[in-house]
Amino acid sequence: MPELWSDYIWPLVLIVTHISVICGLVLLAVAYLTYFERKVMGAMQRRQGPMTVGPFGLLQPIADGLKLFSKETIIPSQANKPVFILAPMVLFMLALVAWAVIPVDYQMVLADINVGILYLFAVSSMAVYGVLMAGWASNSRYAFLGGLRSASQMVSYEVSMGLVIVCVLLCVGSLNLTEIVMAERPWWVQLLLLPMLAVFLISILAETNRAPFDLPEGESELAGGFMVEYSAMTFALFFLGEYANMILMSAMTVILFLGGWLPPLGIEALAFIPGFVWFVLKTTGVLFFFVWARATFPRYRYDQLMRLGWKIFLPFTLLWVVVMAGTLLVFDALP
């Protein structure tokens, strides 16, 4: 059966290899994101950060990983076991599957689907299940409160994120991520998108439960939030999922606003540097913003967080969709 081999098995092998390479790279990036975060925060707070394991502490993430692997996984006796174990797996898996549609360079993507941005939005909106399931299944007050907080927080900020994405799509005219990056944007459209970039950056902090919006795990009142009952490998999956989500959201920002793999500011002279290098550099820039925000701002109060999401961002982004659409229509710049 030669067709079977050439039509099914060979493509399958190719895709599986491709997927494993992507997962491996994302996991490596996650490991070194923790190192990056600790080093940058160390520098901001005038201390050294990790520096004893390996040269400049470069092997620290690996040591941390090994430590978590070798610890004992504890499952509380009153926990709802299947859901308790499923929750970290869901969170971690969702953080990885989203990478299927991220184009790191022109044509360098696993699945170049028509509705790439919808796929990303769908996957990122499902991360809340991992948190909610963990909070409920732990059968603990702290964890449950953390889960509830996270659910309302993520759902609230998704609304304004959706409207921000609509603004970008208005001047692109396609849901395909490659076309979003390649779309021509005159300088005044860039200028109009600038406030949306600010809203989006703040929203992704809330969406990934990062400081200053890390209320679901706020240790000062919730003792660690939804993952208080998790230990060892299950905890590590949450941790990896959270950081993988940070990288994913940064990549999304880069694709939507910062021109993806294209050289910055459209400088042709820089085009000799391969596209994925630019993509990685820009993503690192957004990740730096994550760390910077964490080192700078104190945690928000919960009602302030909700007020920001519903009473400020939602009306503002809604208004801006109208402004964008009107401007593009008047200047005849709709794609």
Partner: peptide
């Protein structure tokens, strides 16, 4: 019908079912 598929995922899985779960858990 990929558009419908993702709208189903975003609206029902991403929003409606979250609220369901939210209420049922409480």
């Amino acid at each position: 019908a990929e558009f419908l598929a993702f709208i189903l995922a975003i609206v029902y899985v991403g929003a409606v079912a979250v609220l369901f779960l939210f209420v049922v858990m409480m």
